[in-house]
Design a protein around this nucleic acid. Structure first.
Length: 818
RNA sequence: GCCCGGGUGGCGAAAUGGUAGACGCGGGGGACUUAAAAUCCCCUGGCCGAAAGGCCAUGCGGGUUCGAUUCCCGCCUCGGGCACCA
């Protein structure tokens, strides 16, 4: 870009040069530690948290910058409003992403990650974010993951960490375990090979124990409603009942099959039972003559890959030869196995009601099992034939159900549960869809799980004093066919004396899930420079829970739920005094480009570096926020960035011109105070785009006449602009003769008296159509406005007789109905 | 299939019951300039009309209301998430 200063006459103020202004203020902020608040003493603590990024090799993505800027504006605004604002930054640098990238380029992650972090830090610095760099952290720091392991131990000691055999996603081509996020539509996201299931011993956290609380607290939390909804759906509570069916032709066996259902009212229509193929009772109930068929089916479904299971919903199954007694009808029903029943949900067994469940209907049709109607809609009766499963509830009544016939679904539900309950065959329960959190990763790049296995002592947690269990340097960290972490190949590390008996023992070789790293980083930040504690008690009390957290909704479930869970556990352990980590959470939208998602494969990625070079960080920041409503995202169109640059140029010019002291023009000052009111309100609710538009409007008024602006007209404008464009604001604030930072200058006050207009335009409608506007005082009485309105030819023309009705909204509109 | 968002000028958008299109981009015209850039000013939803003015218009169809982009009912469509959850 041409340097605008060269063409200027010497007596004119120098033009706006973003590069030098931004460098100057970034350096000054660093020198004066301007963004490092005194966490121990600063008044009105305000913890503004942004989601820390995974430091990819590609560098900062424009989407990262969009997220950070939205936080930064809110944080800077709060600071100007008088809060001590803590806005830290860090890196979520462990995990499969780094590892896979390292494998691809052949550089060890321990070398790659610091490099990436340096690049991220540089880019974040250039963006002018108000970061307290004294508390910077990376989850890969020894001083960080030591405490991640400590968190594991806290859960372990409270009985919330346990090991069990569970299936993992296995890619036979890459010979590696895949996280769920790496499986797209049943195939490996890297090579496209169908993913298989493998059974491995894995560590789990008992998050399901906390499901009711995780769900209940949502009702009173100040979070984006979309995020709350996602969490509710993910936890997925279902109200229903456990019903017990006794095995055997006449219910003589000692075995009970317990099913879960949300529709106990339909039990009279339960014509068969289905067990998940891996259900523990399958072996026991299967009759000898059916053994072969059952075993064959179980073998097949165990081997079946994920793709087949996800794409084909055809119903398959096998008959066990056994029957059980329906506790409501007293009749025998056959017991089948089928993979449409999932072992992980409910009890792993269902009562099938083919008349009123689509899946059961398909299965019953395929295998010729009886279908009975037990619910009838308003225009149906007990004998209306069923063409398909009918699941209606509202206005429906129970039929073919003995003494319960004629009851509504809701009534029948309650009555049947208590009726069966008296005989010990039913119990009302709530089932959750949430599963326990599998934290094991058979990988290299993560914090080793701090557990030691000893022949004599069994599973022994690593004593706290021995933390961290350091991640050793392993040259070849490629996962292999064994499904065992590469850490097992490091003999000196792997073999370790038992902390209890001192005998030769071996370490757990799994590392923990990256989501565990990020489930507590907000607790660490205020104490990030402390090595002796995970988080300082006093600082934590003062700074947590997080005051304001703004992040992407892609983390609506996992990260935010895990963070809540870990916080609750630490609360229950008496380590912190709050159980919800984020007092306020807002989900921001996503940025797309020219109507399409930005992605490397589409080749439409824009890089922040190039944009900062060309336009300056202030313009880029402000432009990103101007694109659209922050909570909905925006469409990046580079051509329109010039409008925002023009705003900054005009503000620069106005301040440079403003030499006159005094009151300021009345019309301009009124607009100024209206603008202050709007910008203040808009930033508070993250409506950044309209705040910027309001400032543009004000600048249009300010520069509308051929006149020299007064100081009083521009000074508050600089303060309003500061959160969006911090560098230029500091520079202009200094130009205006201030020695303190604009961020310590406060926030302009609205003078309410100046905001109100003397006369206003009042819209006049006839039968709902706008016919004229009239000028009147804000509080003019209806009669006066009506007279004015009728004097308008455009109104009189349409008002022929006496008006039927008149609606008057003072200061806004007059509506005449004829 | 289920859940959550959207659909408004040429484009990004604003207005959450009260003058639809603020603000910005793009486009057109003009001023300044030898010229260009920059800057500044004016115009810019569609149709009819010389003008005054009128009519139409917020995905589609209904409804409530003096008045609906906004609230209600039914659909179409795009984006995101989940998916045999009993």
């Amino acid at each position: 870009m041409a340097d605008p200063t060269t063409s200027r006459a010497p007596e004119e103020a120098p033009g706006y040069d973003p590069t030098s202004v931004e460098r100057k203020w970034q350096d000054r902020w660093a020198q004066t530690r301007a963004n490092t608040p005194d966490l121990a003493k600063g008044g009105k603590p305000f913890y503004q948290l942004m989601m820390f990024p995974y430091p990819s090799a590609e560098g900062l993505h424009i989407g990262n910058l969009y997220a950070f800027t939205g936080n930064d504006i809110h944080g800077r605004f709060q600071r100007q409003r008088g809060h001590t604002v803590f806005q830290p930054f860090g890196y979520d640098a462990f995990g499969i992403h780094s590892e896979n990238y390292a494998l691809k380029v052949g550089v060890h992650p321990s070398e790659l990650i610091p490099r990436n972090i340096d690049n991220f830090r540089r880019q974040v610095h250039r963006a002018g974010l108000m970061i307290d760099w004294s508390k910077e952290l990376s989850t890969t720091d020894r001083a960080y993951y030591k405490w991640t392991q400590w968190i594991f131990l806290q859960l372990y000691h409270r009985g919330l960490a346990y090991k069990k055999r569970a299936s993992v996603n296995w890619c036979p081509t890459d010979k590696t375990v895949l996280a769920n996020e790496q499986v797209e539509g049943g195939v490996c996201e890297r090579c496209g090979t169908p993913v298989e299931q493998r059974l491995l011993e894995q560590w789990f956290f008992r998050i399901t124990d906390y499901a009711p609380r995780l769900l209940r607290n949502l009702d009173t939390m100040d979070w984006s409603s979309s995020t709350l909804t996602s969490q509710r759906n993910w936890i997925g509570a279902s109200e229903g009942a456990r019903l017990t069916f006794r095995v055997g032709d006449d219910g003589d066996s000692a075995d009970d099959i317990v099913v879960f259902t949300t529709r106990p009212d339909t039990i009279f229509g339960a014509t068969y039972l289905v067990l998940a193929p891996e259900h523990p009772l399958v072996d026991k109930v299967t009759r000898p003559e059916q053994r072969k068929a059952v075993d064959a089916y179980r073998a097949r479904s165990a081997k079946q890959d994920v793709v087949a299971r996800k794409t084909s919903k055809d119903k398959t199954g096998a008959f066990t030869g056994a029957t059980a007694i329906n506790p409501a009808t007293g009749r025998g029903v056959p017991i089948w196995i089928a993979d449409y029943v999932l072992m992980e949900y409910g009890t792993g067994a269902i009562m099938a009601v083919p008349g009123h469940d689509e899946r059961d209907f398909e299965f019953a049709t395929a295998f010729g099992l009886p279908i009975i109607r037990v619910v009838a809609g308003a225009d149906e009766n007990a004998d209306t034939p069923l063409e398909a499963a009918e699941s209606h509830v509202e206005g429906a009544r129970v039929v073919n159900s003995g003494e319960f016939d004629g009851l509504t679904v809701a009534d029948a539900n309650a009555r049947i549960v208590s009726w069966l309950g008296e005989r010990g065959a039913a119990k009302a329960v709530t089932t959750y869809r949430l599963h326990d959190w599998c934290i094991s990763r058979q990988r290299y790049w993560g914090p080793p799980i701090p557990i030691i296995y000893c022949e004599s002592c069994g599973t022994v947690p690593v004593p706290e004093k021995d933390l961290p269990v350091e991640l050793p340097f392993v040259e070849d960290f490629r996962p292999d066919d064994s499904g065992i972490s590469p850490l097992a190949r490091h003999a000196e590390w792997y073999h370790v004396p038992c902390p209890q008996c001192g005998k030769q023992a071996r370490r757990e070789t799994d590392v923990s899930d990256t989501f565990l790293d990020s489930a507590w980083y907000f607790l660490r930040y205020p104490s990030a420079d402390r090595d002796d504690v995970p988080f300082d008690k006093a600082l934590t009390k003062r700074w947590l829970p997080v005051t304001s957290y703004i992040g992407g909704n892609e983390h609506a479930v996992l990260h935010l739920l895990y963070s809540r869970f870990v916080t609750m556990v630490l609360h229950d352990a008496g380590l912190i005094d709050f159980e919800e980590p984020f007092a306020k959470f807002r989900a921001h939208g996503h940025i797309i480009r020219e109507g399409a998602k930005m992605s490397k494969t589409k080749g439409n990625v824009v890089t922040p570096d190039a944009l900062v070079d060309e336009w300056g960080a202030d313009t880029l920041r402000t432009y990103l926020m101007f694109l659209g409503p922050y909570e909905e995202g925006g469409d990046f169109r580079e051509r329109s960035i010039s409008g925002v640059k023009r705003l900054l140029d005009r503000v620069w010019a106005s301040v440079s011109d403003a030499r006159t002291a005094g009151q300021g023009d009345e019309v301009v000052m009124r607009k100024l105070h209206q603008t202050i009111a709007k910008v203040t309100d808009d930033i508070g609710r993250l409506s950044y785009n309209t705040a910027i538009a309001a400032m543009m409007e004000y600048v249009n008024v300010l520069r509308g006449h051929e006149r020299v602006p007064h100081r009083a007209e521009v000074e508050p404008l600089v303060q309003l602009l500061a959160p969006f464009a911090p560098h230029i604001a500091e520079e202009l604030w200094e130009t205006l003769g201030h020695t303190k930072s604009v961020f310590d200058s406060g926030w302009p006050e609205v003078d309410a008296a100046r905001v109100v207009e003397g006369t206003v335009k009042i819209a006049v409608q006839v039968n709902g159509k706008l016919r004229a506007t009239v000028d009147a005082t804000r509080d003019a009485p209806q009669d006066v406005v009506l007279q004015l309105a009728l004097a308008e030819a455009g109104v009189a023309r349409f008002v022929t007789g006496t008006p039927k009705k008149i609606i008057y909204v003072a200061g806004r509109l007059l509506s005449i109905v004829v």
